[in-house]
Computed example of a mutant assay.
Amino acid sequence: MAVVSRYTVALHILTLLAYSSTRSGTYLTSDFIAKSVNTNPVFIRRILSSLSASGLVQVKYGTGSGWCLGKKSDEITFLDVYEAVEQKQLFEYHHSTPNQFCPIGGNIQTSLEPYYHAAEQAMRTSLSRSTIADLLLDTVQ
């Protein structure tokens, strides 16, 4: 079974909310969003919570309750979404410290650091160039 990416689901949620804002302007419930993603509403609410903490979505309680975008779709970059939902580094090191007496194990993590840093910076630069508005245009043709 594949691991569900919080990031991909967050992009899906935000694009759906952007679409809704251009159509009816109504708030969408987590149940409605879960049906679009085809997953559990509890999982959706966890992601919405992270997006809300970053100001990317807003919640309305009471009559007509649900979720909407917290910013304009052309102001939400893929990087904003990544930073809101991904808590781990892009590349992780060993789960346990490598053998420090081994010629490779003693220096592997330090040696990998500049490669990992450069790759993460390239990813961040790329993600900062795309917005939810761009994805909405690509999705709804």
Results as ranks from 00 to 15, higher is better:
residue 1 M to S: 13
residue 44 I to P: 00
residue 70 G to H: 03
residue 134 D to V: 03
residue 116 Y to W: 10
residue 131 T to K: 02
residue 17 L to V: 03
residue 8 T to E: 13
residue 6 R to M: 04
residue 127 L to C: 08
residue 134 D to A: 03
residue 91 F to C: 06
residue 45 R to Y: 03
residue 7 Y to G: 03
residue 88 K to R: 14
residue 126 S to V: 10
residue 7 Y to A: 04
residue 91 F to T: 08
residue 120 E to V: 05
residue 3 V to L: 14
residue 138 D to M: 11
residue 114 P to R: 01
residue 96 S to V: 15
residue 23 R to N: 09
residue 139 T to Q: 10
residue 91 F to E: 01
residue 111 S to P: 00
residue 14 L to V: 09
residue 4 V to C: 05
residue 105 G to L: 04
residue 14 L to Q: 04
residue 89 Q to A: 14
residue 71 K to I: 00
residue 134 D to R: 02
residue 61 Y to H: 13
residue 57 V to M: 00
residue 129 R to W: 01
residue 5 S to P: 02
residue 64 G to C: 00
residue 22 T to R: 09
residue 76 I to V: 15
residue 135 L to Y: 05
residue 89 Q to F: 07
residue 82 Y to P: 02
residue 31 D to Q: 09
residue 129 R to H: 09
residue 64 G to R: 11
residue 67 W to L: 01
residue 33 I to W: 06
residue 23 R to C: 12
residue 94 H to V: 06
residue 116 Y to K: 09
residue 21 S to D: 06
residue 17 L to P: 02
residue 55 G to W: 10
residue 80 D to P: 02
residue 19 Y to A: 11
residue 74 D to K: 14
residue 75 E to T: 03
residue 28 L to C: 06
residue 117 H to W: 08
residue 125 T to V: 07
residue 13 I to C: 03
residue 89 Q to V: 10
residue 124 R to I: 01
residue 102 C to F: 07
residue 94 H to L: 12
